[in-house]
Design a binder for these strands. Sequence first.
DNA 1: CAACGTGATGACAACGTTGTCATAGAACAA
DNA 2: TTGTTCTATGACAACGTTGTCATCACGTTG
Lengths: 342, 342
Amino acid sequence: MRLGGRLVTLKQVAEKAGVSIKTVSRIVNGDAAVNVETRASVQKHLTRLNYVPNQAARQMRSGASSVYGLMTDVVATTPYSVDIVRGAQSALKDLHQTLLIANSDGEPEREAELWRMFRAHRVAGVIYAAMFHRAHDVGKTAFGESIILANCYDAHDSHSGIVPDDEQGGYEQARHLLRHGHRNIGCITLLESIDATRLRRAGIRRAFNEAGASFNSDMELSGYTGRVWQEESIVREAATALLKLAKRPTAIICGNDNVAMQIYSVAAELGLAIPQDLSLIGFDDLKLISESLYPKLTTVALPYFDIGRRAVEMLGNTRTSGHQRILVPCPLVERHSCRTLV
Amino acid sequence: MRLGGRLVTLKQVAEKAGVSIKTVSRIVNGDAAVNVETRASVQKHLTRLNYVPNQAARQMRSGASSVYGLMTDVVATTPYSVDIVRGAQSALKDLHQTLLIANSDGEPEREAELWRMFRAHRVAGVIYAAMFHRAHDVGKTAFGESIILANCYDAHDSHSGIVPDDEQGGYEQARHLLRHGHRNIGCITLLESIDATRLRRAGIRRAFNEAGASFNSDMELSGYTGRVWQEESIVREAATALLKLAKRPTAIICGNDNVAMQIYSVAAELGLAIPQDLSLIGFDDLKLISESLYPKLTTVALPYFDIGRRAVEMLGNTRTSGHQRILVPCPLVERHSCRTLV
DNA sequence: CAACGTGATGACAACGTTGTCATAGAACAA
DNA sequence: TTGTTCTATGACAACGTTGTCATCACGTTG
């Protein structure tokens, strides 16, 4: 059977049932004004013929689309960011809407093509999802209000964006260690050019201030060099440097779980046990890493699923006035890589 | 501006340009029989008004859909399996088609709903993508030939499936080690209930036979207990057992990169250096792990991207008769976790 | 009895496209 | 000249729905 071809139509059902097309339509849509017997009879034919309404026809008639568009930039690098897609799907399911998805590979030309494509399908709204927290210039599209940025924000703030609260995440990381009595704390960060780095640093400072502790900048080293997408890891070198210090830190705040993973191995080489000799706290909560390390990694989770969900929810409420930047909190996930200092 | 609402139509362009709807249609579709001057003039209005053809109307008129459906079971666990989606998107891009995506969360009820949804949108074909290599019972749908299974195969072999060649992958793992002179080789496998485990084992045996070596079953231990989705890792215990053997293996074949990652840490604890004292080879090539371990992990890659691409390509060729199970090879990715024995 | 409300149903148009066929004028051959 | 072919264009129908309005058979009210 050829797909995309003709399927059972209202007309066919109507003929079988001996009623008008309109009556069948009424029943399909659950309209009130139909005789009970007629309804039962038609219903029978409906199921027997396995009728499924044609969305294209519906959309054309009503002008209302039941499809949303999701544009992603680059999927390859941060695997769990697909949770944004899952979150969006989850919310869409509740709305009985569906998702048209496309990937721009970060090419502006391709992106323009996709905006056209979404227009061609008359999607009801678009989510632009970036694979890491950053600014994005959406530019001028025909979609106006019906665009939400997920995990990124509009460069000109003319669209709403939903992003992780990296400042609060950094705060959680530091506070957790401070509460456990650590004062000599190291930091291995991500690339300076990434928004998250700056924000998390601010959160970490805030936690230190709040605890009446002072942060020693010498204890903060970058774990990467180069530029985004082409960065090179120098985590091992940085960690080694920190851990060979005369007054070596009792804990290290890691830019992400991957950094933590690398430090686990450095610590092992130096004969330092985690968490006895060194406490580590990660960021992202990539379960593939955080739950497989030994001991399991205490970390702060990126709320990707929530970001996706809320993006759709915001698209639903078109009433929302103005363009906001919404921060989704990053929860602490406590496992076994941090000890309490006596 | 409301989305999903009315956009510029052929009629509007036709009025502005002072020609008939049909003429504009001809130009949009690049039909030959149009006067050069007319074409130029209409083209101008087309771009000025930013006309984009309405897919719903096109589809209704022609009966041909430009959308494919992709149904996934559970995305959460194996993050890189989204490469299947990327691969599909990549192929679809070339065909100027788009992708409607939905997630069944593994619930049969939801799955049935999604088949209906795909029918409602009259998609031109459906890819059912599983997140790990397994059998799936598609059952009876209205889609007939236009279903391809990706990373899984139909329980009744009534649909074509594209799966990784796990047997060959296992063969590659073993052969690589054997070629490097290893003979005392351990194995830490995944759950027995997973197809991949059985297939890879067969491949490993084949490599041993080919090399005239004999595989000692005592050296093969399962790294997990329990059932799929709820498995519990006993990789550390298994690895420790192997490595404390009087005649400890010089190399271990790992069920996946995650297993390898856990063994790195066990080895460190036992004072064994990789690859000097122990060679390891993984499976999957999750870059997040394989490239961050130190030394970087030699492994066999799951060809998820290819699987996605080929699934779409197969859907394109409707001519393909019969239902096949296509095996996509798993290439060896050589890094630094295996040494040559002298 | 007439006028009226009510409940159930159907006829018809329209949404934006494209395939089919018709038409008008120009170019060409007899 | 007349008839024929060709080129460029347009009129119209149809795809499958649903909103609007009309219709018809009731039963109820004055």
